[in-house]
Design a protein around this nucleic acid. Sequence first.
DNA 1: ATGAAAGCGCTAACAG
DNA 2: CTGTTAGCGCTTTCAT
Lengths: 305, 305
Amino acid sequence: MSEATRSAILEVADDLGYVFDSTASNLRSQKTDFVAVTIPSINNANFAETVGGLSDGLKERGLQILLGYTGYDILEEERLVEQLLRRRPEAIVLTGDRHTDRTRRLLINAGIPVIETWDLPVRPIGHVVGFSNAAAVRRMVDHLIRAGLARIAFIGGDADRDTRGADRRLGFIAAMKEHGLDATRLIAAGVPPISMREGANAMARLLETMPDTQAVICVSDLSAFGALTECQRRGVTVPGTVSIAGFGNHEIGAMSVPSLSTVNPFPREIGSRAAALILDVLDGRQSGPAVTEVRPQLLVRESSL
Amino acid sequence: MSEATRSAILEVADDLGYVFDSTASNLRSQKTDFVAVTIPSINNANFAETVGGLSDGLKERGLQILLGYTGYDILEEERLVEQLLRRRPEAIVLTGDRHTDRTRRLLINAGIPVIETWDLPVRPIGHVVGFSNAAAVRRMVDHLIRAGLARIAFIGGDADRDTRGADRRLGFIAAMKEHGLDATRLIAAGVPPISMREGANAMARLLETMPDTQAVICVSDLSAFGALTECQRRGVTVPGTVSIAGFGNHEIGAMSVPSLSTVNPFPREIGSRAAALILDVLDGRQSGPAVTEVRPQLLVRESSL
DNA sequence: ATGAAAGCGCTAACAG
DNA sequence: CTGTTAGCGCTTTCAT
């Protein structure tokens, strides 16, 4: 039919209030144009960036994100994954590499591309776009030691629900031991993800119980900023008396006075790479499982100079 | 059938890798258990809180959020709304009250509950859960004037794409004029939503062009924190030389030194109230359009004492 | 109670 | 190329 006829029909349809029903289309064509994405929490600038990168990369193809939050809980992740798979997504993107056995089975049976992100899984389910949290913290430890600091502490959450946070702590411990240094200055600061306030409280405990500490690595920039403010309230100079480092390259770390040393995990790039990978797989340009490492960048700033 | 048989069947189904296909269910039952939600940006702690409140309130009923980002653009919102309506959501939650005419038509024709949030629309489409951004800033102006300050500036974005930001600026201008004060100390700091960095740059311009300014109200806590750090870098005391206020009750405002005066718009409550309203409408407990005002709270902190 | 059959609104396959 | 028809996998209805 002619373009004129076509647009005339579409206009009449619009005037009549017709809206295409994709539920019928989905059933018949066995295509939903959904990509399922699970993140631990919506209220986290890093994961939000990853979702933004995914969303931008997928929307040009008309793929829509179906987002779910696990609350840092692999059982909740299992429920969520099952619920999401019922919607018949074309692909699924997960945060992290720790899953229940049933989650793994469900994902494998689903027969769709599975992408684990924000980690480098030992036993990947399918594709991977991530990095080693432990190795990233190791580089921060190396930097602090090169700067002449030895009594270094780690502030993180008090459980292993946040497995990336737990990996960062393990990376800290391993790196310290490699250098022959004491790796027992560990402060557990609350249920992950820990807040600015919890970072401040942890810093208070650290200053009181281990006052000779020379540097602190925090599991995130938010807790690092909280730790910094606690030092400021107590008149402890940063750097000088104590150096502080964070993780995640949140804007707060670039703007605070002093600015915070941190690690940039390129969260948006994780999302855009995952999106590109999904398109490659769906278009048959990628056959086997792909492992893409997005190497984090160490950012040395005023708080550890 | 017996409970034992039932669970046995379900177990076999699970072993076979069967996963319920909700696309078929959706088509036949004309129910999707989707609630569509549009927010300007995913990377905003306030909107993230609202989505969190919505999500928690809806998931007990098995309702899943279908989230979309408008990028603070009503044309993008139109495209998004049309795309979302094709999925046949049971209800739709919008951020803001400015929409294209076509968006309004689509929403009315959809025949589902429509909830506008984060504003008090003059001409609501359906339900409302929000507050007056202008009135909230007016209360901040009143507070600063009561504190004896008169030369007050406003830092915001340089366009009206962020209509809530624009309303805050209008509220500032109206309040200043009511008090017979000069309302021309306006700094436009970049494309909304403005960042910490842009807040800092705006503060720099303000200090250089209007050095006698006594107080600054920023469109958000993030830009207010940026403004604060710029003062710190220049040795301008806050408060004392300049008082600073933000908007949004982000955690940064509570933790910074000095802490930032701000307005708490109860973002999570907006989400949970919207969720409760949706359940009420779907269950027939609410018939006519409901307007719920979530009154913001003025938080006076160190930065304006 | 249980079982059979129709049908949701599209898309794909096939016939003309 | 256009027009017709079957059918996606559930839910609902109707008959037994």
